[in-house]
């Protein structure tokens, strides 16, 4: 079944200069391989098109069921220069929650949150 990532994983963004890092952490060990296989750096960058202007590097931390995306040129020149209201990019992690993933039906019980 197709589900939004928000049912599969949680996320947090942080800033360093003009670089944003967004970690995406599976809610369970069983869900993690589907996250790792489908949320590639290329797809991540496409999902953030228009805001992330530089390269995206993905790091896997299997022990935490986590992916860490490091997106360059993502904060409008940097926190102090940005004209964006959210100049730290604190809400950028919310964008990845809308990414669509294909998850086996048998894992429905592992998914979080209300689904329509």
């Amino acid at each position: 079944m197709k589900v939004m990532l928000q049912h599969v994983a949680h996320a947090r963004s942080g800033d360093k200069g003009n670089t944003s890092n967004i970690c995406v952490i599976a809610y369970s060990e069983a869900l993690y391989p589907y996250l790792r296989d489908q949320l590639t750096a290329e797809r991540f960058k496409a999902h953030y098109a228009g805001v992330v202007k530089g390269p995206v590097q993905r790091y896997e931390v299997d022990g935490l069921w986590a992916l860490n995306f490091v997106a360059q040129d993502a904060l409008g020149g940097g926190v102090s220069r940005s004209l964006c209201l959210d100049n730290y990019g604190k809400s950028l992690s919310a964008r990845v929650l809308a990414f669509e993933l294909e998850i086996p039906d048998r894992l429905a019980g592992e998914l979080r949150g209300p689904r329509n």
């Binding site: 996320a11 970690c23 935490l64 860490n68």
Partner: peptide, 14 residues
């Protein structure tokens, strides 16, 4: 979950 999110907060290569 709170510990994992903070562990990777503002981290590049973990």
């Amino acid at each position: 979950q709170t510990v994992k999110e903070q562990m990777l907060y503002e981290v590049h290569d973990p």
